[in-house]
């Protein structure tokens, strides 16, 4: 085990642990704090694969802006501690959980197969692989350029220009819907 690998596994541990903390903690403020920890851990992961720009953005946007908003909302609506819901109460919930578990194990199986097989071979065509080789990129040079702001901006404004612009429409629809559904006095509705 080299150092990036040790770092990877320790951050994985933090990520999974804090994700559980978000879901299972009774106090919403503490849940939000676990979410902050999760985002920071994710930023560290980005840094590990050499995407330092993504890591910076992750900290700035999620930890800096979105989590503050979360905490404001929690403060404004003064949520109290909640008891855990009775899981698996009805059939629909059970099906959803079963599908989630199934999908997770499928993914896990695929990834595990990859770890077993691709210790040496590396046949991914240009994409960042999920294999152990990811860790080598911190020492190697191959994917270092992928993390640069330059590459991201070229991708965003050339190759993916259309989806990028369309997202603004999706957000516009979401904003309009939020206003319309929560506004107290509309012109015609009850």
């Amino acid at each position: 085990m080299n150092i990036p690998e040790i770092l990877f596994y320790s951050f994985t541990f933090i990520l999974v642990g804090s994700a559980f903390g978000v879901v299972f903690h009774r106090n919403p403020v503490k849940s939000a704090m676990f979410l902050v920890l999760f985002f920071v851990g994710l930023a560290a992961m980005y840094a590990l694969i050499g995407a330092e720009f993504m890591a910076t953005l992750q900290v700035l946007v999620y930890v800096g802006a979105i989590m503050v908003l979360f905490l404001f909302v929690i403060m404004l609506i003064s949520v109290r501690e909640e008891a855990l819901l009775n899981m698996g109460g009805n059939a629909g919930r059970t099906v959803i959980i079963a599908v989630l578990v199934l999908a997770f194990s499928l993914q896990f199986w695929v990834l595990l197969g990859g770890f077993m097989k691709s210790q040496g071979e590396h046949v991914v065509n240009g994409a960042a692989p999920y294999s152990t080789e990811v860790m080598n990129y911190t020492t190697g040079e191959k994917l270092l350029i992928k993390g640069n702001a330059e590459v991201i901006s070229y991708t965003l404004f050339e190759k993916y220009l259309l989806p990028f612009e369309l997202i603004s429409l999706v957000l516009l629809v979401a904003v309009l819907g939020g206003i319309l559904l929560t506004k107290h006095k509309r012109e015609t509705l009850q």
Binding site: G114, S118, E121, N125, G126, A127
Partner: peptide, 24 residues
């Protein structure tokens, strides 16, 4: 992750070994 592209027309021509990681 498997093919290195999200363009549909670039996904298909990628040739894989049957039991390779990318194929899975």
């Amino acid at each position: 992750g498997g093919s290195g592209s999200t363009r549909l027309s670039e996904v298909l021509p990628v040739v894989f070994a049957e039991d390779s990681f990318s194929y899975k």
